[in-house]
């Protein structure tokens, strides 16, 4: 009987899973496994290939002067972007859930960059960042800030990319936080108010703990996606100047499609995978201490 039930469960599960799992195997799992195999070869994107074991991985860490550079750039990007994105998204979500009217309109406005082709807005951002003529420099000039070649200076190019990315991306998390904040029962907030809690205290004591799972979710997903930053750097700077904005996936893309070194690119992808995995597991561990589930 027990066995029969198990088998029945298994059968139902197989039935429900099979459409997705067949597609998943074919279109995701196989290519992923292949990329792992490819990473063990000297695998030009086309042409003769040769098995070389872990040589690609060894080259990455010992020979390639650019790899540490792009790793550093990517880390800076991920750290700054995730922090700014989450803080801004949370602040705007708190603000928007506090106004009674027009919240939906503002929400749509802040979500708009998500649906706008980045190849178009990327160019506009380049104009905004232009030295001498750009709006940003002219605005800062009012406060006596000297003219900055934002995208052209190794020291500032990454900040410009981050600013642009936050503009583009924070609307997504904002929506998630808005949803989280709406889910908080009014009664709990009221109760705290009656106890004499101010706005700040309500946030710290009630709202923050209650939406901490969604903050956690947002951070995990944003970290994963920002490690894979590509479009922005490709379109805004192509990694320049002097590789100051060259990021891991951009470098990977160039290796696979421009330099035609598929095996090397695949090795890079698996290093990236390992990094993201470690980060995600770390976050899962931290989650236990910081996230409150009811």
């Amino acid at each position: 009987m027990q066995l029969g039930k198990n088998q029945r469960n298994m059968l139902t599960a197989v039935g429900f899973l099979s459409p997705n799992i067949i597609g998943f195997m074919l279109f995701t799992a196989i290519p992923v496994v292949q990329s792992l195999i490819i990473s063990l070869y000297d695998w030009p994107t086309f042409g003769e290939r040769k098995f070389i074991g872990l040589q690609n991985y060894i080259d990455l860490f010992t020979k390639d002067p650019l790899f540490p550079k792009v790793m550093g750039n990517t880390s800076i990007y991920v750290f700054c972007y995730v922090a700014l994105n989450i803080v801004l998204a949370l602040a705007m979500a708190l603000w928007l859930t506090n106004i009674q009217r027009g919240e939906k309109l503002y929400r749509s406005v802040f979500f708009l960059p998500q649906v706008t082709p980045i190849v178009a807005t990327g160019m506009i951002w380049k104009w905004l960042f232009l030295p001498k003529y750009g709006i940003i420099n002219n605005f800062l000039g009012i406060f006596g800030v000297p003219d900055i070649n934002w995208l052209g200076t190794t020291g500032t190019a990454m900040s410009a990319i981050i600013i642009m990315s936050v503009w583009q991306g924070f609307g997504y998390n904002m929506i998630i936080f808005i949803a989280g904040l709406y889910a908080i029962p009014e009664s709990q907030i009221e109760a705290a108010r009656i106890d004499g809690a101010g706005k700040w205290q309500v946030f710290i004591k009630i709202k923050f703990p209650l939406i901490s799972p969604s903050i956690f979710f947002a951070i995990v997903m944003t970290v994963i996606s920002s490690f894979q930053v590509f479009d922005q750097t490709m379109i805004m700077t192509a990694g320049g100047p002097a590789n100051a904005t060259n990021t891991l996936v951009l470098y990977l893309y160039n290796n696979a499609f421009t330099y035609l070194k598929m095996g090397y690119a695949a090795a890079m992808a698996w290093v990236l995978f390992a990094i993201i995995m470690i980060f995600t597991l770390l976050q899962m561990r931290l989650q236990k201490d910081f996230v409150t589930y009811e």
Binding site: N9, A29, I224, L252, A266, M268
Partner: peptide, 25 residues
Amino acid sequence: FRGRDLLFTMYLGTLMIPQQVTVIP
């Protein structure tokens, strides 16, 4: 069913592989 969570973790893991490298396979 047995192996459920393991399989699910595998699913999630694939989110972390950039598309640029799986696109040719």
